[in-house]
Design a protein around this nucleic acid. Structure first.
Lengths: 157, 157
DNA sequence: ATTTATGCAAATCGTTTGCAAACCT
DNA sequence: AGGTTTGCAAACGATTTGCATAAAT
């Protein structure tokens, strides 16, 4: 699905006077294959370019709106293809034990409610919202199986 | 309002065998006074302890569920008092220009929808959600006044 | 007296940058 | 050729840690 993102990406880079080099294409392919947000370290292992190139190209791709940066619960930045290049708007399940980040889609109605909320806030707080983040924190299946619940979780919402 | 969080905090620390030292109390006071998530640097300026103590104590407070770590759009970790110590559950307005983070409260109905969503996901994906994050990204009033819209925003959701 | 917290300075580690060689067009 | 991208190694900066002193119990 969404198999030819490349022309759209090339166009988007071109708009910004950037080239769609083989290294950049490789990065994009790694992200497409993963189907979930990847840390810089993961990207480095899969696509095999120098780390400076990986970081530099991720920055370029991010600046051109091809790649989006995702903040999880650990110290690692994660990257995924921009939503408008793949199928749809989605959210993240973030494991507070292992840091893994997975995608999920929220019901249409909820999305509409969030957008309505954004409109209200813009109006009342003078804040110009352009996108949102709705993520769930908890423990992934694997971590539920292996480890006892961490203590701090008892105090969370 | 919520003026005496200290006894609750002392109890919470005590549960974990931690002391509520003057340095820790100072940190808490700084966070209470701010009323918004503060970076470690901001905390350092206000409460005047050594940076190692600030970081170490923030870590202790976080582990005991007194303080919560907030990820914004910049590289700085931000800290705020745990929601169950202050008045209520809230969300964040994150400025993509200057990185500032402000609080806001969502309508009750939306919160319920999100909680319902968490339940669905737990059921279908085997993910044990214990809290969520619903934040709006955009430009704060000050940044709207000063700077032209950044280019990358055109590609965002 | 023993355990725990503090402050300083040095180390850590993800990320960024300077620079010379390789790559386009 | 002229400008861009790459890879290496060194730099950067937020956060963490080792260790000796100060505080708390």
């Amino acid at each position: 699905m969404a198999d030819d993102v490349h022309p759209a990406i090339a166009a988007r880079l071109d708009d910004d006077g950037q080239r769609y080099t083989s290294g950049r294409r490789k990065l994009v392919e790694v992200l497409v294959d993963a189907g979930r947000p990847l840390t810089a370290a993961e990207v480095l292992v899969e696509g095999d370019l120098a780390q400076s190139s990986a970081y530099r190209n991720l920055a370029v791709l991010e600046a051109c709106g091809v790649v989006h940066r995702v903040a999880g619960s650990d110290e690692f930045a994660r990257f995924e293809l921009a939503e408008d290049l793949t199928d749809h708007h989605h959210h993240h399940l973030i494991c507070t034990s292992c840091g893994a980040v997975a995608d999920f889609t929220a019901p249409e109605g909820l999305e509409r409610s969030v957008e309505e909320l954004a409109r209200q806030v813009a109006a009342t707080a003078g804040f110009a919202a352009d996108h949102h983040r709705l993520d769930l924190f908890g423990r992934c299946q694997a971590c539920q199986a292996c480890l006892p619940a961490p203590h701090a979780a008892a105090h969370d919402t």
